[in-house]
């Protein structure tokens, strides 16, 4: 039954919907897809079994809708986006007479894919040199780890990378980034303590002098309620602009997939102070389903640049909406 969807989804959408994969060899792309499927296996195992029972009813009635609602809510999709998806399904059911479990499932996964498709905008670091990427997020979202993985990712694309240890607050954050730098053989610009904005400014100047392609600027984790820290990060952004008028070219907000509806508040708050241009969704390899991105797509859409489905250094990759939906449903 689910094979049906998988095949159909694969045939219909895979070739055009994989712009990121076209730059890689097919072999790599396949293994990434496999990894994504592997990483989301638990999500699928949990969800798939339940979906099967729900869809086996064979028609869209109140009971099915209620069970689906439950399922979406437990995936952190949130009330508003859940309502939207169910409405979309109801509308389809009215129009197309969905009578088989497969048709209902296809309709739902399509509604989800349509909702998420606008968020699928891979990050291209061409056009500026250095391409300055600023990384922000709450405490423990996985910023520094993501930077380590991103450095590897950009290197594998033949870019030279420089890291700026802008987290001057947390104990040993600098050392943590340095270790990532050593592992990837990437220069890390750091100062002893001091002002995060100054560190980032130095790093951009250094990147210019050494004609580096990509600068990844780490920042300390902060909760949006800490206004003075939000002001501090706004200053980091202004200083980046001073170092290079066109920068930052990308402002990434790192979100933990385990976080619930507060993720929305985080996106809004960080957007307000530093104009977020993209998201990184980490820790999708747990049992969390990352359903909150559906809520984000509805209420404060921002492109999802990368998703992380494992601890390995290669496990952070561009987001592909259809793959993500397939990995959940298939």
């Amino acid at each position: 039954m689910f094979g049906f969807l998988k095949k159909k989804g694969g045939e219909a959408v895979s070739p055009p919907a994989d712009p990121a994969a076209t730059t890689e060899t097919p072999e790599q792309s396949l293994s990434w897809r496999e990894r994504l499927f592997g990483g989301l296996a638990r999500t699928r195992a949990q969800l798939g079994g339940k979906l099967k029972t729900i869809f086996s009813r064979g028609k869209v009635d109140d009971e099915l809708l209620e069970e689906l609602e439950t399922l979406l809510l437990t995936s952190d999709v949130g009330l508003e986006a859940t309502q939207h998806l169910l409405d979309a399904l109801k509308a389809r059911a009215k129009k197309d007479k969905l009578e088989t479990p497969e048709a209902i499932q296809e309709a739902l996964s399509q509604a989800l894919a349509e909702l998420l498709a606008p968020l699928e905008q891979p990050l291209s670091v061409d056009g500026h040199q250095p391409y300055v990427i600023m990384i922000a997020g709450v405490n423990g979202a996985g910023k520094t780890t993501s930077i380590g993985k991103l450095a590897k990712y950009f290197q594998s694309q033949g870019k030279s990378v420089l890291l700026a240890a802008g987290d001057t607050f947390r104990a040993a954050a600098r050392e943590q980034l340095m270790t990532w730098g050593e592992r990837n053989n990437v220069t890390v610009i750091a100062q002893d303590g001091g002002d995060p904005a100054a560190v980032v400014f130095d790093a951009i100047s250094a990147a210019k002098a050494r004609s580096i392609d990509v600068v990844l600027a780490d920042t300390a984790g902060r909760l949006p309620t800490q206004l003075h820290l939000m002001e501090e990060i706004a200053k980091v952004r202004r200083v980046i602009q001073k170092a290079d008028a066109s920068a930052p070219h990308e402002v990434l907000l790192v979100l933990d997939a385990n976080i619930g509806q507060n993720a929305l508040a985080q996106v809004k708050a960080f957007d307000k102070s530093i104009h977020v241009t993209g998201l990184v969704l980490t820790k999708l390899d747990g049992t969390a389903k990352g359903g909150v991105i559906a809520a984000i797509a509805r209420q404060c859409p921002k492109p999802i640049r990368f998703i992380g489905v494992g601890e390995g250094i290669d496990d952070l990759r561009p987001f592909v909406a259809r793959d993500f939906v397939d990995a959940i449903f298939a």
Binding site: L73, T74, S75, D76, V138, N139, G140, L223, P224, T225, Q226, N258, I259, G260, Q261, N262, A263, A265, G286, T287, A288, K289, G291, V292
Partner: peptide
């Protein structure tokens, strides 16, 4: 988020927990 239930259950089954510490309560969650 919602997954707190699964995580807590798994940890509780593996370890005889004696208590919980709730962090980052200064946020707006």
């Amino acid at each position: 988020g919602q997954d707190a239930v699964n995580t807590a259950r798994a940890f509780n089954e593996t370890l005889p927990l004696t208590g919980v510490v709730l962090t980052k309560l200064d946020g707006d969650a």
